[in-house]
């Protein structure tokens, strides 16, 4: 077979041209920044408002605790060596956030919300954004709530790049790039959904869950395992608690004007 080196040279020339066409990363990153904000975002700023509903009408309250019984799962440490910038931000090993049992035997990261009892009522979404921050290559908060139509501000608080891949079933999914520290992007969910998972495919351990509701009566259990649904109109309600590993539990409660009803949940491992 005849040797035809000119085609090999043609191919090699193509490779060189392709390599030469690359633009500088920092230029590209700057142009893809959506909303400026080159300054790093403080964690305190980022968590403000997340998972906390503003006050609408009504004076009733449903308050309670999410308890945990059974064997506590052993903490699993996250390997962050895939990105040195992530590793640098943690002096101690970081545990997974899927099951966090508080020292008082309660469960963290449980999304508690009014599932029914508000039919026929409409609640305008707040203009203030709920913030989902990426800090130390972890989402903060890990579980949060937002109203349908309320702005969601996604912030890159890290000195590394993230993609934010949210997969709602009832709203339009999105996957955005946040290559620059301090970058902010605003999104909205257009329909109710329990829960929307957001993840970073660059750092596969990163996951956040967003409860999207047409009303503001939701809460997330914190470091004391407590939750509070405030300023409810008087009525009978079904309250649901959602946990990413342990599923859902439902309770009913009656609330009168100015009254506080107590509802506790108990998840077991």
């Amino acid at each position: 077979m005849r040797r035809e080196p000119q085609y090999t040279w043609m191919f090699l020339a193509g490779v060189l041209v392709a390599i030469g066409c690359g633009s500088r990363p920092q230029d590209a990153a700057a142009t893809s920044q959506e909303q400026g904000g080159a300054k790093p975002v403080r964690l305190a700023q980022a968590t403000e408002g997340s998972g906390v509903a503003p006050a609408p009408a009504g004076s009733g309250t449903i308050r309670g605790t999410v308890k945990f019984s059974g064997a506590q799962p052993a903490a699993t440490h996250i390997k962050m060596d895939a990105d040195p910038q992530c590793q640098l931000q943690h002096k101690e090993p970081v545990s997974k956030q899927d099951v966090v049992v508080n020292p008082n035997g309660t469960l963290q990261h449980v999304f508690v919300y009014v599932k029914s009892g508000l039919e026929g009522q409409t609640f305008a979404p707040p203009a203030d954004a709920v913030v989902l921050n990426q800090h130390g290559c972890m989402y903060q908060p890990h579980v949060m709530g937002i109203q349908v139509g309320q702005p969601l501000e996604i912030v890159n608080g890290d000195a590394t790049l993230h993609n934010v891949n949210c997969k709602p079933a009832n709203s339009k999914p999105f996957n955005i790039a946040q290559p620059v520290q301090g970058m902010k992007s605003k999104k909205q969910f257009t329909a109710q959904e329990i829960m929307v998972k957001c993840a970073c495919n660059v750092h596969p351990w990163m996951a956040a869950y967003v409860g999207v509701l047409p009303h503001p009566y939701f809460s997330v259990s914190g470091e004391d395992g407590g939750f509070s649904l405030n300023r409810l109109p008087a009525g009978d309600y079904t309250v649901e608690a959602w946990h990413e590993r342990f599923g859902t539990q439902t309770k009913t409660a009656h609330v009168g004007d100015g009254e506080t009803a107590s509802v506790d949940f108990d998840f077991s491992g």
């Binding site: 990363p25 790049l161 495919n201 660059v202």
Partner: peptide, 22 residues
């Protein structure tokens, strides 16, 4: 890792993004 780079044909606006994670 398919969505770790949300743009195309460039990757994070460049041909050579930081090679971390996905």
């Amino acid at each position: 890792s398919g969505l770790s780079v949300p743009d195309w044909p460039l990757s994070y606006g460049t041909m050579f993004p930081p090679m971390v994670g996905g």
